[in-house]
């Protein structure tokens, strides 16, 4: 079980959290302007990288807040967390 570093509450066991998948997939401001392929890309395409992954977490059974995290998908180590809406930190970590 992961130990998830909630930026608001501190490290807590994973069962308190819900992972919301890849971060920085913003809902298009004008969905109608997208063609079907672009809309499908928004809805479904995911990077699923082997290495650093920017992803969303919700401290569901805690403060109830969403935040972003950078986690390595090979070691599962959390590199950092940051607020929703913030850009992905420029960290090259391959731990």
């Amino acid at each position: 079980m992961l130990l998830v570093p909630c930026p608001y509450c501190g490290p807590r066991p994973e069962v308190e959290f819900r992972c919301g998948g890849e971060a920085h997939i913003a809902r298009p401001a004008d969905p109608d302007a997208l063609d079907d392929a672009a809309w499908a890309e928004y809805l479904f395409a995911r990077t699923s990288p082997k290495g650093l992954h920017a992803e969303r977490w919700l401290h569901a059974h805690g403060c109830g807040r969403w935040f972003n995290a950078l986690r390595n998908t090979v070691s599962d180590a959390f590199i950092t967390t940051y607020e929703m809406g913030q850009p992905r930190p420029d960290i090259a970590g391959d731990r």
Partner: peptide, 8 residues
């Protein structure tokens, strides 16, 4: 629940 390649 999270993306991982760790096989664990």
């Amino acid at each position: 629940q999270y993306v991982s390649y760790s096989q664990q």
